[in-house]
Amino acid sequence: MALLQKGWLKYILMLLVFVVGQVLVMTGILNDYLFATLTTLCINIILAVSLNLITGFTGQFSLGHAGFMSIGAYVCALITMRISTIPGFLLGVFAGACAAALVGFIVGLPTLRLRGDYLAIATLGMAEIIRIVFLNLEITNGAAGLNGVPQFVTWPWLFLFTAGTIHLISNFIHSAHGRACITLREDEIAAESIGIDATRYKVTAFVMGAFFAGIAGSLYASYFYFLRPTLFGFSRSIDILVIVVLGGIGSLSGSVIAAILLALISTYLQSFPELRMVFYAVALVVIMILRPQGLMGSKELSFDLLRNLGRSRKRRSS
């Protein structure tokens, strides 16, 4: 019974977020500038949540997430520039995600044998190779990039893909397959000793992460008009990793909260362009000193957690 209620609350909350967003858009309170910020935020949430699956839950340190994102972006753009309709857009998103997943599979099979730092360097190299491929391909128009990608992203699509990503990855984590991924982070030798095929689950997490990063890239392409290879460099991969670490390795709600927090900080700092990056960096350092395990640690935001927090407050005050 309690479980059922909790499940319902989640859906009601999601519906609420959607309706509030829709009202803000329709009344014009969410102007173009704010909507662009919101789009960036949603894309960052998708990227962070999907990287968290690879790095936070499965324990595979990846520095190449921007590479998967760029594949989704380019593939989707190339499709929507030819089929400029809603079905074309959906096809583009799906194809972009699948292309990213396919590359994730091809790259993942050999590299996921590597551990820790070595894997990080291999994934970094992969993202660079992808970038250089886009830089040299004729169809992607090299360094000049693609201009005039049709814009399809509206609030309902944004919400659907963001909420859908969170929902599916959360479901996966709370399944036997997701738990198998988590045992790899905890102790790979012990995991293998109880029959968990480490390679298979690492590749699964990597491919799924790449798939959703591909969706994020597709949304990016379908909102921001133009694509250039430099948009998907090393620093973007780092930005995504920062959100994951800040929110808490292995906490989906942490990733969401951190993405929102960073969006707020960076929007607020917009008015001080010279000091923006300095403040941003200082804010990161301060948060990491105060909470080295990330904002949420490995916990999820849940009603139980809130209740327990309330209880311990009360106990302390009494």
């Binding site: 599916l168 479901n171 996966f172 399944s175 036997a176 397959h177 997701g178 738990r179 198998a180 988590i182 045992t183 995991a191 109880i194 029959g195 968990i196 699964t204």
Partner: peptide, 15 residues
């Protein structure tokens, strides 16, 4: 997690 080897459901039910 140690019962994983006899697991019957696949990725779709998990998602």
């Amino acid at each position: 997690t140690a019962m994983n080897k006899n697991l019957k459901y696949g990725l779709f039910p998990a998602l």
